[in-house]
Design a protein around this nucleic acid. Structure first.
Lengths: 217, 217
DNA sequence: TACCTTGTTGATCATGCGATCAATTAACCC
DNA sequence: GGGTTAATTGATCGCATGATCAACAAGGTA
């Protein structure tokens, strides 16, 4: 992931700017996922790749930007992964169910914690605030696109796909946040989100697939 | 609010430990609501009450504790206010509707932002993390109590009031978070939460009161 | 009024952060 | 192999934070 390409020259410590930049970015991502955005520090990143703080500083306009870019990279990558994962679904109903499963899965803690950090730090880091907006919009666009596809395919109906997308993402984020802060994971809450989605889309109960549902069934 | 009680002695600068502590706490609360938990700083609090940083330090075991206590005080006060506000409701259904209105009202930004800070900072501040847990549990207990009262009164049925309380709070927090970070306020989302609540409680649509609902109706 | 308790101060320390820059030296090219 | 480019370093600055403590002085008390 960190462009480790064989590296022909023996004992070579110097790297091309592109490689170094990639290395810095990768280190920042790893730190962010492990210790949160607050863990991304000049000296911390430098130490992780065995380099002087000055060098890290040299490859970034400012730490605020590095933090913002790191957040954006992680979230964007995740959107890509989820999109790819959902591409195999024949019907949009199935894709939506898979999306909910994915976003409320057992391994969400790191990314959810990252979002919590971003929401909080965004008030003191303009670059990050902008990136938070961009990534939230990206998620919203992805989900609303999914909804529109489903409507186009005649699988369900939605009055306002944009609004419903925001609602679903809001609910999911809230449940995930609670799960990260107070519980282990939010898997048991999938049923609730499914129910909400089914209601919003005018689907029958269970149309989005069923695991062990939480509430009344 | 900051115990300004007349103060008989003229030109008195000295205050009793209790008064000073209250003054410090009040200043911390004001700062937290205005600038977030990150704004609570030794020198900042000191400057606000016209006092030396050393004095503020003198009245608190550590800044981490002051931050945690400030967060707890604000949230606890809000729970108290909401509880009092809901006490006038004759039926629990009305109380639940009022609760949703209150928690998704137009002036939620400061408190929601505070929660976001707390969730994020809790990873680096043990005292705060504990307080976050306590206050989340307090809210959960309040809501589940409300649900149990409604069940006892025969107004609706809930299989697992504890779980449903967590779900409702999770949804509300998520929508509020999105509203704070990306939108003005979450008022237009009340309809969604009402719908979820009605579904969870086996109520008819509109049973929790209606404002302009968002989705399909 | 003199004393003594104690709330309060000023100075100071230690820490961690981001950022800068001349000097170094590795790596490439001719 | 020598020269040149530029990646990298070490040293150092400036700033903000939390925390400590001897010294001071306000204010109640005898």
């Amino acid at each position: 992931m960190s462009t480790v390409q064989s590296d022909p020259r023996p004992g070579a410590r110097r790297k091309s700017p592109a490689d170094r930049a990639a290395e810095v970015a990768a280190a920042a991502r790893e730190i962010a996922l492990a210790d949160g955005l607050a863990g991304i520090t000049l000296r911390g990143v430098a130490a992780r790749i065995g380099v002087t703080p000055a060098l890290v500083s040299h490859y970034q306009p400012s730490m605020d930007v590095l933090v913002a870019d790191t957040f954006a990279a992680i979230v964007a990558a995740e959107i890509g992964e989820v999109a790819e994962e959902l591409a195999s679904c024949a019907r949009q109903v199935a894709a939506l169910g898979a999306l909910i499963d994915s976003l409320l899965g057992p391994d969400r803690s790191p990314v959810t914690a990252l979002w919590l950090d971003a929401w909080s730090f965004g008030r003191r880091n303009t670059a990050l605030a902008i990136e938070v907006g961009v990534q939230m919009d990206a998620w919203q666009a992805f989900v609303s696109g999914l909804l529109r596809s489903g409507v186009a395919a005649g699988e369900f109906t939605v009055d306002d796909p944009d609004a419903v997308a925001w609602q679903l993402l809001g609910i999911i984020d809230g449940l995930n946040a609670h799960a990260v802060v107070r519980y282990g994971h939010a898997g048991s809450l999938r049923g609730l989100v499914r129910t909400v989605a089914e209601h919003e889309l005018g689907l029958a109960s269970g149309a989005l697939g069923t695991t062990t549902t939480t509430s009344m069934d």
